[in-house]
Simulated scan of single mutants.
Amino acid sequence: MDEPLVDIKHLTVRFDDRPVVDRVSLTLYRGDIITIIGPNGAGKTTLIKAVLGIQAATSGHILRAKDLVIGYVPQHLSLESTLPLSIQRFMLLSGQPLAACIAALERTGVGHLLKASVHHLSGGEQQRLLLARALVRKPDLLVLDEPAQGVDINGQAALYDLIRQLRDELNCGVIMISHDLHLVMAATDKVICLNQHVCCSGHPADISHDPAFIETFGRPVAESLAVYHHHHNHSHDLSGNVVGTGHPGSATGHGECNHEHH
């Protein structure tokens, strides 16, 4: 078997002697998409920070593959609002060549905004900019903290589709945090339900009726969200509008979203 990108064993992080992450184990390989879900205060972001190496563990250990390149997509882009900053300049701050920055922006669908201000972006555009910034280094591991934060539901579906495509193109691993369970169930290979410790984990369809999952989220995901698989016969633009249905003779630019749920 290939060497894991990240191998976490019995990781514990304590704040003021209180366990925020409690004996968590997780192994991720190239091609994996693992989504961490859980209630507020469950330790999800703390776990991600430990993977990134910016949060020290109290006990346990994290092994990272040699020369591992990590691309990180935070929840929000926090910049001083009075600081003039174009998307081009923001991307160049990564230290990568302009051609690579433009290619990453084009791949995430915001190449046309190269000269725009970072302060004038929609939620979807901002998340795609952050994703481009993470991609420009050709990461082995993509780490995303609530990647669809501030994006409408159709835009979320398109963003998760893009993440899966990038996983395939880069042959990278993906760890993401999400509260968007109804879309994540179709966007991930494995779900880890975290509430300081790992309540349950496995393929989305397998854990959806797990007693620990139901105890944490209240009822089976099939009843509360009614979605595992999210099929499109069209695509969405950055605002979530339908831009094509894929049917001969159908109009492009607008339309209703025809989803299948199982």
Rank of each mutant, 00 (worst) to 15 (best):
S59E: 15
L114A: 04
V227Q: 05
S94H: 05
P4T: 09
A56K: 15
I70N: 04
M1H: 12
G109W: 01
H179N: 06
S208K: 09
V242C: 08
A212N: 15
V69M: 07
Y72F: 15
L225Y: 15
L105S: 12
D152E: 12
H261N: 10
Q75C: 07
R137Y: 03
L93H: 13
E106D: 15
L63Q: 13
Q88L: 09
I163E: 08
V136N: 04
L141H: 06
Q55R: 15
K9E: 08
V136T: 10
H112R: 14
L105R: 05
K190L: 04
I175N: 01
A205E: 14
R167S: 05
H61M: 07
I207Y: 05
N233A: 14
K190W: 14
R14I: 06
G71C: 09
I62C: 00
I214F: 01
L141Y: 08
V20Q: 06
S250W: 07
Y228A: 08
C193E: 08
L141T: 08
Q96W: 02
P248N: 14
E215N: 12
H231N: 12
P139S: 11
A226E: 10
S201V: 00
S59R: 14
E169L: 07
H259D: 03
I102H: 12
A100Q: 14
D180R: 11
E125K: 13
I102E: 13
G123M: 07
H76C: 01
L130R: 06
S178M: 01
I70M: 14
V243K: 07
L28C: 10
P211W: 10
D161I: 03
A104S: 15
V191N: 02
L121W: 12
L114I: 13
C257N: 02
A251K: 14
C101I: 08
D152T: 11
V110W: 02
S178V: 01
V118I: 10
L105Y: 04
I48D: 00
A50Y: 00
V143S: 03
K138Q: 14
V242P: 00
K9N: 12
P204R: 11
M91V: 03
Y72G: 07
D206S: 15
V73T: 09
V221E: 00
T188D: 00
L83R: 11
V6G: 02
R107N: 01
L79T: 12
H10P: 00
I163P: 02
D180G: 05
T27Y: 01
D237W: 11
V221L: 11
Y72K: 05
C172Q: 10
N40L: 06
P220T: 13
T12A: 09
L5A: 08
H262D: 09
G95K: 06
D152C: 05
K138N: 13
H254L: 08
I207A: 09
L135A: 02
S201D: 06
G218P: 06
F15T: 12
